[in-house]
Computed example of a mutant assay.
Amino acid sequence: MSFLDYLVVLSTLGTVVFSWTYLLLGRENGQRELDREEIEERIMELMGKFRYMSANRLELLERKTQEIRRLIAEANTAMSKLMVKMSEMERLELSKVEITEEKTVREEQKTQKEPEDDTEKDAGIEKKIVSMYDRGFSEIDIAKKLGVTVGEVRLILQLFKRNVG
């Protein structure tokens, strides 16, 4: 039984108890006999009205509950569509950023001159690795784009973090 059902039962019992108490304590014996039938009829009438009103309220409550459930389902559908659109927009934005970064890396590679010795070449790779890492490239992407191993990239980044930090 739901809360409202308990409420209906308790209200009905309260009405009956009150009515009988009123009958037993509030009237004289002679008058009780005459009015008892009237009071019982009135009590039954009131109980019927109460049941009718409570049934209508329960039905209205059930309809509202169903409407709320329908609205929640619609909101969930709209939210999922919105999330899909947002992820598509993020993917487009990321692809634009990656294209821009690739163009920048290519332009940097074109404008850089050939290093004269290995130490100058290593310093250039270190700068590229740190620069690409700062722009958000992953270690794997950096390794692929520069043609070095992931271990080298990690080592250079760790050394750079030690020197800076």
Rank of each mutant, 00 (worst) to 15 (best):
M86H: 12
E107P: 00
K128R: 13
S95K: 14
D35T: 05
E37K: 09
T100G: 09
T149S: 15
A73V: 10
G14Y: 06
A123L: 07
K121L: 07
V150G: 01
S19G: 07
M79T: 12
R91P: 00
A75R: 12
R57L: 15
E28D: 12
S54Y: 07
L23A: 00
S131T: 08
E88V: 00
E126I: 03
R106H: 06
L82D: 05
K49R: 11
I140V: 14
D134P: 01
L25S: 07
R42T: 03
M44W: 14
E101F: 06
Q112F: 11
R27W: 00
S80K: 15
I142Y: 01
K85V: 11
R27C: 00
M47Q: 04
V17N: 12
F137D: 04
E33V: 07
V9A: 08
L7C: 06
R42Y: 07
S138T: 05
I72A: 02
T111V: 10
V97N: 15
V150N: 10
A55H: 09
L23M: 08
T104R: 14
L24N: 01
F18A: 00
G124K: 09
M83Y: 07
M83R: 11
E74W: 06
L71P: 01
I99C: 03
E38R: 10
I125L: 15
R32K: 14
L146C: 05
E116L: 06
V97R: 15
K96S: 06
E74Q: 09
V8N: 10
E37N: 07
M44K: 12
E45K: 15
A75E: 09
S131F: 00
F137K: 02
R69K: 03
K145G: 00
Y22C: 01
V84N: 13
E74F: 03
N76S: 09
V130A: 10
Y52V: 08
